[in-house]
Write a protein that binds this DNA or RNA. Structure first.
Lengths: 349, 349
DNA sequence: CGAAAAACTCAAAACGTTTTAAATACCGAT
DNA sequence: ATCGGTATTTAAAACGTTTTGAGTTTTTCG
């Protein structure tokens, strides 16, 4: 492996000058810089990252901890995040150290990884209200970035979508189409994203002067079967007057709802309007539904690059407040939403 | 962060002695070692990996590259491996650096990770015949351990099960029960494990003096639906005389076969015997099948610790030949296998 | 008791880089 | 020629560890 010393020896320069030349410092002459660059290219010089890290005090590695469900499965979004994240980090020459959390206590794994002392920071996802990981990492002064937000105003970097707006936009679209009985099949309510969606839903419903009984607001870890069984219960009339529209927390849930509608002989969108939030996971494409799904869309993959950049910038001293972004999901109207069916215009009491 | 210097200052020893004391060198007195250890524990000393690496050339990090399918999903075993591996590596104070492979060329990701120069070695899984990753890493002299084997005799560390024996054991059990028409629903035949299973299957079938037409030997990426559609085709009689027993590459496939049998009104095991290979994934428990599945069982989780240890030992100079283990899957007879049904005793022509 | 051997400890070099502080070269103006 | 200043380069320190070669102490044994 070629080193700075090799280059400096060949040119009769000091290693300091060579280092500066290659790192674009302004005080080195153009002629010298060119000569250095030439030799470096010729002998295929690659800086030794370990040595760089020893002197700069940074490791160029960040941690990510996968939280498994009780049944040892990962949340369907995990892989997508992982893929995008490693790519985005690699772009800025940072590596991802992974660990898997099988513990009950959410912070012990972070503690253990920190003890090894090789991480510059963490990427957190799936926040819950008053997330204990946040308190822990802040108490240790460890930089991190959060995917999603747990509170309205925070003092750490994050990137996420406006989840209240997601529900608002969905309700607003359906209300415009004349719907008065709108149900919600939300994700796991322990997580902030689902709490925000539900809150946005309730707000929007109230603003439209409507009402949705509790029996028509559900929440659970997204799965096709959850969508199916809940929709079956709601649409069969067992729980009271059935809804004319359902808002789903994910396309996976929507798939189940679709199947339930089919089994009950209901057609989408003439008997039932359907709108889902779409993370744009490659396995489950909303456009491939029959009919194509109306969605609030925000590709999970799009979050990875900002997350990586926010974190790295923060580690390099960037101000937390300037490294926060909340973006708005895009409302894409396709064919699973339509005017309220005749005879379905009465609101719930 | 506490350093060797802190300890040496506190005790009035040299850093050299402190280093030796902590690393178990023989030439330091028991008393000194104890004093050093005490202080180290008290101030929570952790060696700086980066500094260690600079001088020893080792980093205490190994790479693992997740290969995604075309549809961006991971193979169902991925998470299980990941969980076990991070735990087993942590046990020996080694970290796992993860990357995700979205490329066509299987070695480019390895090359890119290597360029950064921070990895001691790799853990490879899902080998294919003449695996290009093996050739690549060997040409660079990078240590690695393989989960599974691609060839009969190799010169690198591995841990895996005897896949030919898996099929042999299954066929042998079924033959003993009187079955003469045994079908195989194998995993993706690009991978060595599936190739070996098929080879073992053919050998065992031949040894029993039997024959299985090509139409009854299938292979594909395991999924419930694959099991369902193939079993439906085989058991409906569309492909010729139907089998009395099916060997499945995974419990996932078996689930599909089970559903197909049910749809066709066949009961297991009186009309059809079923045996699957069981990786013991927590999501899909063979004992929870109805009837409980007869399996060749080899928990994927059991592979993680040996893999981690083989790799670390190899990195520390251990001989490749002594770091190879091939174990035998356990045959567990439950209730999905039974005597051949009356009238099903004719072999295929 | 004294010398040789064994046991233990230390100072310093090394790994490859960045960065600080100091030195030298170059320039135009006196 | 000399001065003051700027532009460029250098030597050396630093990061935290391991390891070499050389001490220093202690033990052993004649």
């Amino acid at each position: 492996m070629a080193t700075l010393k090799d280059i400096s020896a060949e040119l009769g320069l000091s290693v300091a000058t060579v280092s500066r030349a290659l790192n674009g410092f302004p005080e080195v002459s153009a002629r010298t810089r060119a000569r250095v660059q030439d030799v470096a290219d010729r002998i295929g010089y690659k800086p030794n990252r370990i040595a760089q890290r020893l002197v700069t005090g940074r490791s160029g590695m960040v941690g990510f901890i996968a939280k498994l469900n009780a049944d040892m499965t990962a949340d369907q979004t995990f892989l997508e995040i992982l893929t995008g994240l490693t790519a985005a980090l690699a772009e800025r020459d940072v590596d991802l150290v992974l660990s898997v959390d099988q513990h009950d206590d959410p912070v012990t794994v972070y503690e253990r990884m920190l003890e090894r002392g090789i991480l510059d920071g963490f990427i957190l996802n799936a926040p819950v209200p008053n997330d204990p990981r946040v308190a822990f990492l802040q108490s240790r002064g460890i930089p991190f970035v959060m995917h999603g937000q747990s509170e309205q105003v925070v003092d750490y970097p994050f990137y996420g979508i406006d989840n209240r707006a997601v529900s608002r936009d969905a309700v607003s679209l359906l209300a415009t189409l004349g719907h008065r009985r709108i149900a919600l099949l939300n994700g796991d309510i322990r997580f902030s994203f689902a709490i925000d969606r539900e809150q946005g839903f309730r707000e929007a419903i109230a603003e439209e002067g409507l009402n949705t009984p509790e029996a028509f607001i559900g929440h659970e870890t997204p799965s096709e079967s959850y969508g199916y069984t809940e929709a079956l219960a709601m649409l069969s009339g067992r729980r009271g007057t059935k809804p004319t529209a359902i808002i789903c927390g994910s396309t996976l849930i929507a798939a189940g709802v679709m199947r339930a509608a089919k089994d009950l002989g209901l057609s989408v969108p003439s008997d039932l309007s359907l709108i889902a939030h779409d993370d744009a996971l490659p396995q489950f494409r909303a456009v491939n539904f029959d009919p194509p799904l109306t969605v609030t869309r925000s590709p999970l993959r799009d979050a990875c690059s900002p997350l990586a950049n926010h974190l790295i910038d923060h580690i390099s001293g960037g101000d937390a407040e300037t490294l926060q972004s909340q973006i708005r999901a895009e409302l894409i109207v396709r064919e699973s939403t339509g005017p309220v069916p005749k005879g379905g215009t009465d609101p719930w009491p």
